[in-house]
Design a protein around this nucleic acid. Structure first.
Lengths: 156, 156
DNA sequence: TAAGATTGAATCGTCAATCTTA
DNA sequence: TAAGATTGACGATTCAATCTTA
């Protein structure tokens, strides 16, 4: 009798599997509470905030859609539809791009800046409830460090 | 001149905001790689695995949909539609419930057990790539502990 | 040919209403 | 009245195809 070859030489250890399970659970729990808080306050989803934040930081020059895709880790078509909705609500504007005729520039409008500003206190309160009230400053620092190792590139 | 009242006495600290941002980013990156691996191998989404795992553990008695909702943190209607799809593919069965005429019991079929078994190596390899290869055992242990503090109940 | 960006059709998720039984 | 569960209608996401310009 021979032992079967262990093909999965890189099978994850039980503690690694638990780490992934808890990462998924902690994020899902946090995200759903944040989304619920925003909705209850009459605001749009968190993805709108993320987009408006990046566009606000980019200033008058705005961003190309492909730049926003990379910031937000969204596929091209998904961002395109998200921008459709935010634009229809009057919070961003799309302009033809002078340097590259294929592309566009996206900029935030004053109404968009105002929306982002008003969303922040609700978002911040939810972050504080889910994270801030459960970790010390030192624990939060360690968590930031460990999660940094999980984010690309592999050698960070 | 009087200072304005600080209404947000619980404004999160910058490190807490960074912790949330990285938690969201690490989970999103991990999940999208896992989903991509499963899809490339011809398998259904991760939610199918999660449901099949719980039902496999529950054995012949199966689970009531409301029990599965709580395990998976899904709303009732969302789980109902997920079960529709998995049932249509022949991987689970819904039975009327003898103890409670309103409810049902959901059980895994042999085909469902087989599917779950075949999905695991692909899922495991992705976990190892995203988590196992980036953290030591000690780091993974600390991460499990910190994430545990973020998961309900608040006093865990 | 490839990159930036969008879109029709199909799938999936969500809201509100509904049905059945406790 | 409330709990377990489902469903019609609608909104969001995804896939594949398309359009325009580099």
């Amino acid at each position: 009798m021979f032992k079967l070859c262990r093909r999965m030489s890189t099978e994850p250890s039980p503690i690694v599997v638990r780490a992934w399970a808890r990462l998924a659970r902690a994020q899902q729990t946090g995200l759903s509470q944040i989304e619920a808080s925003l909705k209850q306050a009459g605001f749009p989803p968190l993805a709108w905030y993320d987009a408006l934040l990046e566009l606000d930081r980019a200033g008058e020059a705005g961003l190309r859609p492909y730049e926003l895709e990379r910031e937000m880790l969204l596929p091209q078509y998904s961002l395109s539809r998200l921008l459709d909705r935010i634009e229809a609500a009057g919070h961003i504007a799309r302009h033809p791009c002078t340097e590259d005729g294929r592309g566009h520039r996206v900029t935030i409008t004053p109404a968009g800046q105002e929306l982002r500003r008003r969303m922040w206190p609700v978002y911040a309160a939810a972050i504080q409830t889910r994270i801030g009230m459960r970790l010390s400053q030192q624990e939060a620092t360690i968590l930031v460090d460990l999660l940094g190792k999980l984010i690309n590139p592999p050698t960070s």
